[in-house]
């Protein structure tokens, strides 16, 4: 498996390739999901002054918020959040979790993305972990609803972080995206 330095370096070099795409799939080594998610949340790839919604499939807000807070130096401010919380302000990251209910994550997304003037981009990680808890149809529906939010312009950008553990979910992510960044090799 590629090491941390190699992955972060490749990610840094490849950012221009995904900066302008609205739908992006990032294939990450499964043991480096934290590093890749962190980088994607903090990196300057998000329009609208960096307001980011992070949909965490398999990790609770607490540890993620701590991670983002600690490492996003000069980047977005992280909110300890849940779907009931207030809309994040510009330059903030809101974490949303929903292991067993991807639909709820998308609903929360609508609430948090705010007014059309202050739209947010989103990062999902780790998409493939949804496969442990949800049917294929449910995952497909989850992506369809994200696509819908993009069309409605409720969100401006969707970055799906996944790994290669599920061939089916990987193919869904690829089908969904306009740009792909493979960090797993």
């Amino acid at each position: 498996m590629p090491n941390v330095q190699a992955v972060v370096s490749k990610l840094r070099q490849s950012l221009p390739l995904i900066r302008d795409a609205r739908k992006v799939a990032v294939i990450a080594p499964p043991t480096l999901m934290n590093h890749v998610s962190l980088y994607l949340v903090c990196a300057p790839i998000h329009p609208d002054a960096g307001k980011v919604l992070y949909l965490s499939v398999d990790r609770p807000n607490r540890s993620l918020a701590r991670l983002f807070d600690r490492h996003c130096n000069g980047g977005p401010q992280v909110l300890f959040g849940n779907p009931e919380m207030d809309e994040p302000r510009s330059g903030e990251v809101a974490c949303i979790t929903g292991l067993f209910a991807p639909k709820l994550m998308v609903d929360a997304l609508s609430n948090l993305s705010g007014s059309p003037e202050s739209r947010a981009s989103m990062v999902v990680g780790n998409l493939s972990a949804l496969g442990f808890y949800n049917s294929n149809d449910r995952i497909k529906e989850f992506l369809r609803r994200i696509d819908e939010k993009l069309k409605e312009q409720a969100i401006t950008k969707a970055v799906l972080v996944t790994d290669r553990t599920s061939g089916y979910i990987l193919s869904l992510a690829r089908e969904f995206s306009e740009a792909e960044l493979d960090l797993s090799g």
Binding site: P30, T31, S128, G131, F132, Y133, N134, S135, N136, I139, D163, T165, S166, Y168, I169
Partner: peptide, 10 residues
């Protein structure tokens, strides 16, 4: 559920 293997560390 989608069939998935567990990731393993040596």
């Amino acid at each position: 559920m989608a069939a998935q293997d567990l990731i393993r560390l040596k």
